[in-house]
Amino acid sequence: MKTLLSLAGQLVVSLGLAATWGRMLILSLLVLSLLTIPVTPASAQSATLTPKEVVEYALTLEKLEADMYSRAFTAIESGGLMSLPEPAKKAIMSYGQDEGMHVTDLSAVLTSLGGDPDAIAIPKNPNYDAILNRDPFNNPQDFLLALQYVEDTGVAAYKGQVQNLLAAGDAGKVVLAGALEIHTIEARHAAGVRYLRQTYYGADVRPWIRDASEVLFNENREGSNSPIPFSNEAFDGFATKDEVIALVGPILTEK
Rank of each mutant, 00 (worst) to 15 (best):
L4C: 09
S6R: 12
Q10F: 08
G16V: 05
A18L: 03
G22D: 13
M24K: 11
L25K: 07
L27C: 05
L34E: 13
P41I: 05
A44D: 14
L59R: 00
L61C: 04
Y69Q: 10
F73A: 08
I76K: 07
G79D: 07
G80T: 13
L81P: 02
Q97T: 13
Q97P: 00
V103R: 00
D105Q: 13
T111L: 12
L113Q: 03
N125A: 12
A130I: 11
D135K: 07
N139P: 03
L144C: 03
A146I: 03
Q148V: 10
E151M: 10
T153I: 15
A156E: 00
A156G: 00
K159D: 01
L166C: 10
G169T: 10
K173A: 15
G178W: 01
A179M: 08
E181W: 08
R188T: 09
H189V: 04
R194C: 04
R197L: 13
A203P: 04
A203N: 09
P207A: 08
P207H: 01
P207L: 06
R210W: 07
L216F: 03
G223Q: 00
P229S: 10
D242Q: 12
E243D: 10
A246N: 11
V248I: 13
G249P: 05
P250Q: 06
T253L: 13
